[in-house]
Write a protein that binds this DNA or RNA. Sequence first.
DNA 1: CATGAATGAGCTTTCATTCAT
DNA 2: CATGAATGAAAGCTCATTCAT
Lengths: 229, 229, 229, 229
Amino acid sequence: MSESPEPEPVDGRAARAQQRRHQRRSEILAAATQVFREKGYHAASVGDIIEAARIARGTFYLYFNGKREIFTELASEFLSLIRGSVRKITLDPGAPPPIEQMRANFRRVMGTVLAHDDLATIMLRDPSEVDLEGRAQMQQFFDQVIGLIELAVRTGRSLGFARDCDDHIIAVSALGALREVLRRMLAARAEAARAEAEGLDVAPSRALLIDTERLADELVTFFVRGVFT
Amino acid sequence: MSESPEPEPVDGRAARAQQRRHQRRSEILAAATQVFREKGYHAASVGDIIEAARIARGTFYLYFNGKREIFTELASEFLSLIRGSVRKITLDPGAPPPIEQMRANFRRVMGTVLAHDDLATIMLRDPSEVDLEGRAQMQQFFDQVIGLIELAVRTGRSLGFARDCDDHIIAVSALGALREVLRRMLAARAEAARAEAEGLDVAPSRALLIDTERLADELVTFFVRGVFT
Amino acid sequence: MSESPEPEPVDGRAARAQQRRHQRRSEILAAATQVFREKGYHAASVGDIIEAARIARGTFYLYFNGKREIFTELASEFLSLIRGSVRKITLDPGAPPPIEQMRANFRRVMGTVLAHDDLATIMLRDPSEVDLEGRAQMQQFFDQVIGLIELAVRTGRSLGFARDCDDHIIAVSALGALREVLRRMLAARAEAARAEAEGLDVAPSRALLIDTERLADELVTFFVRGVFT
Amino acid sequence: MSESPEPEPVDGRAARAQQRRHQRRSEILAAATQVFREKGYHAASVGDIIEAARIARGTFYLYFNGKREIFTELASEFLSLIRGSVRKITLDPGAPPPIEQMRANFRRVMGTVLAHDDLATIMLRDPSEVDLEGRAQMQQFFDQVIGLIELAVRTGRSLGFARDCDDHIIAVSALGALREVLRRMLAARAEAARAEAEGLDVAPSRALLIDTERLADELVTFFVRGVFT
DNA sequence: CATGAATGAGCTTTCATTCAT
DNA sequence: CATGAATGAAAGCTCATTCAT
C-alpha cells in the first residue's frame, strides 16, 4: 500500500516479515497436527513433521523449541477453542432455562470438536501419552471442566432441580462420558470417511454418526435425568 | 509309585526349577508393572524394567520376547481379572432384581481395580499409548464391555424399565464415566498415599476417596436414573 | 564282557565312561557339522548346535572350549581325511607312470570329498570366514597341498615330461582349479538333491554332476595338457 | 542465462554441498574398504567403520542404510571395474589372434585388481562370508565370468584350436585358478609391504611378486597348453 | 532466515560363556 | 557329568537437537 521508498519501509518490511513468520508457524502447526493425529505423540518424530511441512530440520527449531513445545501449543489452541464454546450458566431473568443452556453448551462443544477434528482427536487421547509438562496442562484443563459441571449441578440443586448427589463424582462421570463419546464419534467419522474414500460403503457404529445435535441431546438427556429431578 | 530311588528327587528338582522359573517371571512382571505405571508404556524402557527387577539384560529376554510381549501379558491378565468380575445379568426367578445385579457388578469391578491398582492404572490409560497390536487387544475388550452394557439396557427396556434411548451411546457414555471415575479414583488414592508417606496431610479430591461401595452406588444411581424409569 | 563284580569294575566303568564320552563328542561334532554346513561358521550359533545335538548349553562346554574349538576340530578331521587320500608320487620301477599316480590322487581326493560332503562343503569355503587361528590352520594345509603339487611338477620336469614354468604359480593354479571345481560340484549335488526331494526335476549345471572319475580325469587332463592344441 | 544476481551463487552453493556430500560418501566407503579388508565382512562392525572414518554413528546411517548396503555398494564397484577390464574375444579380420586377446584380458584384469587391491582382497574372498543378498550378487558375477570363458573355449574349438573337453568344467577350473592366484598375489604383496614397512626384508613366495604381465602370461600359458608336453 | 549435515546418547536385541544345582 | 538360568558385553540402528554455511 505504501509506496514511499525510504521512510516507512522498515516498518513495512518488519510487518511483512512478522506476517510471514506467523504464517510459517501456522503451516508447521498444521503439519504437526496431521502427523500427531495419524501417529500419536510418541510415534510421531520431528522428521515426520518437517517432512509434512516441507521445511528443513533446522527451520523447525527456529519456530519451536522442540517436539514438546509444538504439542503444548496445539494443546493450548484446543483448550482455548473448547473454553470459547462453553458459557457459564446464568440465572438471569431473561435467560433460557438452565437445562437449555446446558444443552446449548454440549452442542457448541460438539460443534467445535467436529470443526477441529484433527486437533480434537489428538487431545481427547489420554494425557499420559504426553510427557509430564503437557500432562499437567491437560489435567488442569479437564479439572476446570469438571469445576464447571460441578457448578452447574450445585446451581441446579440450589434451585431445587437436582437431586442429592456427590457433585464431584457426577462431574467426573459426565466428563468421562463426554470424552468417550467424542472420542468414539471422531473415530467413527474418520473410519466412515476412510471407508467412503476407498469406495466401500461399510458403516461402522451408525449410532455415533448421527448429527451432532441429536448426539448432544442424547447425552444431555442422560445427564439430566441422572442428576435432575 | 516310585519304582526306583531316583524318580522322586528328579521330579522334585524339576518341579522346584519350574517353580523358581515361574517366580522369576512373576518378579519381572511385577517390576514391569511398577515401571509402566510410573513412566507409561512408551517412556518405559527395557533398561528400566531390568533395573527394577534387578536382573541382567539377557535375563529379560529369557522370559519375554520384548517390551511389547510383557505388556501384552499384563493386559491379558488385567482383562481376565475384569472379565472375572462381571456377571451377566439374569432374569431367573430366584435372582436379585436386575439393578441390584448391576450394582453388584460395579462393586466387584471396583474391588478388582483397587486390588490391582498398579495394573489398573496402566490399563485404564488410553490404548493409543500402546502400539497397534496392544491397542487392538484393549479396544476389543472395551468394545465387549460396551456390548455388555447395551445388553443390560436392552434387557431393562424389554422389561419396561428403561426409557427409549440410543443403547450404543448410553453404553459408551457409561463406559466413559466408569473409566474416568476409576482413573481419577486411582490417581487420588496414589496421591493420598504419597502425601501420607511424606507426612503431609494434603487431601486431594476427597470425593473419590470414599469407600468403593458408595462410589459404585453413586455411579449406578447416576446411570440408573439416567436410563431407567 | 567282564562280569566280575568288584575287582575290575573300576576299569570297566572308566572304560565305559570314556566310551560314552567319546560318543557324545562325536554326536556333537556331527550336529555341528550339519549346522555349519547350513548356516556357515559365523551365522551358526552355539544355540543352533546344542539344539541340533539335543544337549544342554553347559554340556557343550564340557566337551569343547567354544565355537572356535569345535570348528578347529572339524578342520583337523577334514585335513586328515584329505591327507590320507594323497600319496606322494614315486618313481619306483614297479610303480605306475607318474601321471597315472596323479590321476589316482585326484580321484581319491574327490571320493573323499564326496564321502564327507558336509565337512567338505564347510572347509572348501574361504578360510576368511573363520577367525585368525582357524584361518592359519587351513592356510597351512593348503600350503602343504601346494608343496605336493610343486613336487609333482618338479619331478615331472626332471623326467623331461614337464615344460619350463613357474612351479609355484602352476601349483597355486591347480589348487584353485581343484577347489573351485569341488566347491561347485558339492553345491550342484546339494541343489540336485534338494530339487529331487521337492519332486522337481530341475537339473542344474549338469556338467558337475557327472561321475567323479570322469570329473577327476577331466581336471587331470586340463592340468597336464591345457586346453588348446 | 542469469536474469538475477542470485542464481549463480545459489547453484554454486548447492553444487558445493552436493560435492561435499559425495566426498563424505567416498570417505566412508574408503574407510569401510580398509575395515572389511582387515577384518572381513562379519567381524567388521559399523563401529569399526565409523571409527576408521572418524564420523559419528548417526552420520553413517545418513549415507548408508546399514552394513550390508555399504558392502553391496563396494561389491558393485568392484564388479564394474572387473567387467570394464574384460573385452569379448572377436574374430574380426583385423583383430589380434584370439589367444593374444585372452592374454590381454588376463593382463587387464590383473592390472585392475592391483590398482584396487583393497577392494579386490575383499571381493576375492568366498561369497559365503556375506549374507544371502550379497552372496547372490557375487555368485551371479562369477557365473558370468564362467560364461565368458566357456564362450572363449567354444570359439577356440570352432576354429580348430581347442581340444575336446567339457567347457563348463574347464571354465570353472580357469576361474578357480585365476581367483586363487590373484588372492595369493594380493596376500603376498600385502605381506611384502608389511615386511618392508617393518624394515624386515622377508620375501614370502617370491613367485607371486613378479610383475603382473609375466604372471598373467604364465596363467594364460597354463590355461592354453597345460603343464606337460 | 533457511538449510541439512553432523552429532551421540540411547534404544532393543543377540549370544558366547559361566556356574550353582 | 548334565543341566539351563543367568550374565553382560557388544551389536545394529533411531532420532531429537545443534550449528556452520
